[in-house]
């Protein structure tokens, strides 16, 4: 039973990706999609110069891949930070990444248009986390509660700065800032992938390798130390790498909420809390969920709804359902 569940989750991104490729404003048959993919990767079939080829390979496929990577990053970082903070309600933005990225985006669109948005969003996202860690550091150690608090402080500070920029810029620019902040994959193409793949892989691979230690770290600082874990160092590494993945993802497509909170929950309910299994499944599940949400966002209406709206619309009812159904159990107790 457990084995089947694991397989289903692991293969869900493939299914979601395939469906996403043949749905859209221009309908393409599911088999032609496969043919085109095989043609582009292995050159088995010769499909000729169909317009479908450009739609599948140059427009939809990179978008699906980007959605997968971003979903996996948010969900993987969610699992990691929930374990580190020993709280199933923590999300990947708790240390101020989203507020930092938002400020980077706002100030670039508003005043510094010579810089690329993604670069500035990335820079300020990292800066925000760095500040949060710096503020939380007392007597050479970073403990859990001060870190949550300083995350709140840094987020509030950058959010205030974003409001200030919004207030000062002209309305046209304001519109693009707001649009970016809602999160969207509409600009994802092969060029985007080229620079997010390294950032996300460098972030996620070490987290993946260290996943079993999340079990031990989630037992609490003192207990983990007694079990022989260098808590300070390992926590710093895990925060660093997951921040790198999330900051890269956020800088590519804006702020997409709920995924990093919801998917880890779902997978934990399905498969249990052991991070050795939970983390890889959360990566796959997060990727699949994001592909599905993005497919909805571009097929529901004739234009692209920002995907952040879709995830929030599905996330809130989901949590209400969890609260009503599972009570305390659903929250990991």
């Amino acid at each position: 039973m457990k084995g089947i569940k694991i397989l289903v989750v692991l293969f869900s991104p493939l299914a979601a990706g395939w469906i996403s490729l043949f749905l859209g404003a221009y309908e393409i048959s599911p088999f032609l999609v496969l043919k085109i993919l095989l043609n582009e990767t292995l050159s088995v079939f010769e499909v000729g110069d169909l317009p479908e080829k450009a739609i599948v390979w140059d427009i939809r496929f990179p978008r699906v891949l980007t959605a997968f990577l971003v979903g996996a990053s948010l969900s993987g970082a969610g699992v990691t930070l929930q374990a580190l903070f020993r709280n199933p309600l923590v999300d990947p933005f708790i240390l101020g990444i989203s507020a930092g990225a938002a400020f980077g985006c706002a100030i670039t669109i508003g005043f510094l248009e010579i810089f690329p948005i993604q670069l500035m969003a990335f820079f300020f996202a990292i800066l925000a986390v760095f500040l949060a860690c710096f503020i939380a550091k007392t007597q050479g150690e970073i403990s859990r509660l001060p870190l949550v608090l300083s995350g709140v402080i840094v987020s509030a500070f950058f959010t205030a700065l974003v409001s200030m920029v919004k207030f000062l810029v002209d309305p046209h620019k304001l519109q693009s800032i707001v649009y970016w902040l809602m999160g969207s994959f509409s600009l994802a193409d092969w060029r985007t992938l080229k620079w997010i793949v390294p950032g996300i892989l460098v972030g996620l691979i070490p987290v993946y390798l260290m996943r079993w230690r999340l079990n031990v770290l989630s037992m609490g600082e003192e207990e983990a130390k007694m079990l022989g874990i260098n808590v300070g160092r390992e926590r710093a590494l895990l925060i660093l790498f997951s921040t790198l993945a999330v900051a890269t993802a956020t800088s590519a497509c804006g702020i997409i909420g709920w995924v990093g909170l919801m998917v880890p929950h779902l997978i934990r309910m399905l498969i249990g809390p052991d991070h050795k299994v939970l983390l890889p499944l959360a990566l796959a599940g997060g990727g699949a969920f994001m592909i599905a949400a993005d497919t909805l966002s571009r097929t529901l209406t004739s234009f692209d709804i920002p995907v952040g709206i879709i995830t929030a619309l599905t996330g809130a009812p989901f949590f209400i359902y969890l609260m009503k159904k599972g009570g305390k159990e659903a929250w990991g107790k």
């Binding site: 374990a83 709280n87 199933p88 079990n215 983990a224 874990i229 249990g272 809390p273 990991g332």
Partner: peptide, 20 residues
């Protein structure tokens, strides 16, 4: 006695003893 944040199985808890 303490309560862990997530409901690990008995075996998973014992395995943590091997962390070092």
């Amino acid at each position: 006695d303490h309560e862990p944040p997530f409901p690990y199985s008995v075996f998973e808890v014992v395995l943590m003893g091997r962390a070092s």
